[in-house]
Amino acid sequence: MNWLWSNLDLVGELMLVHLALSVPAIILSFVVSVPIGWLAHRYRWSRGVLLSICGLLYAIPSLALFIALPAFTGLSLRSPVNLVIALTLYGIAVIVRTSADAFDSVERDIRQSATAVGYSSAGRFWGVELPLAGPVLLSGLRVVIVSTVSLATVGAVIGVQSLGSLFTDGFQRGIQVEIITGIVATIVLALGLDALSVLLGRLLMPWTRRGSRNGRAAAARRIREESA
């Protein structure tokens, strides 16, 4: 335990570095996969191709991808940007199918009614389809958060600092507490980001919150009013 008390600063710093690697990757994979998911939903013929290609990304071994990426990006092997790109690609692979499902989950009646009252295509996407796809998109985002935070540790093997450095360092120097600290800190980070995303979802999608909390009360009220 002594190791931990004398290295709290290092752990804190690595947590921040780890955040700086995973948060951009999480946001990027979300932002990229939403339009891909929408295309797969909108144009049926593209669905199989898009989802298969994105899904295949996940089959690339991570170490191989880390080493191959600099050849495309021109960056050094140890650049954190390479890692962020790799994590983004994996994130896309994880979320893109959910993203297509999210748009599928918007009821046809509601889309038609939005069109009928005069939404333009773009207005309908931003004002109706995207928010209503929100709950399913959030469930996909939560998986990406956990998988990205965990996968970012692999960067330590190629020399990009992260909480994973605690694994490699602890392993080389035989400090068990360091390894355990790395694992716990990674999990804490993942759970923290997950909780944050749920909170954000509640703020941005108040109708789902009311629906679940007051669902029963609303149903009871409905029955009373209907019979009155």
Partner: peptide
Amino acid sequence: RRGIGYVMQNSGLLPH
């Protein structure tokens, strides 16, 4: 469409 009223079955209201 913005100049014509439209009412459909199941109300077609925006749930959000």
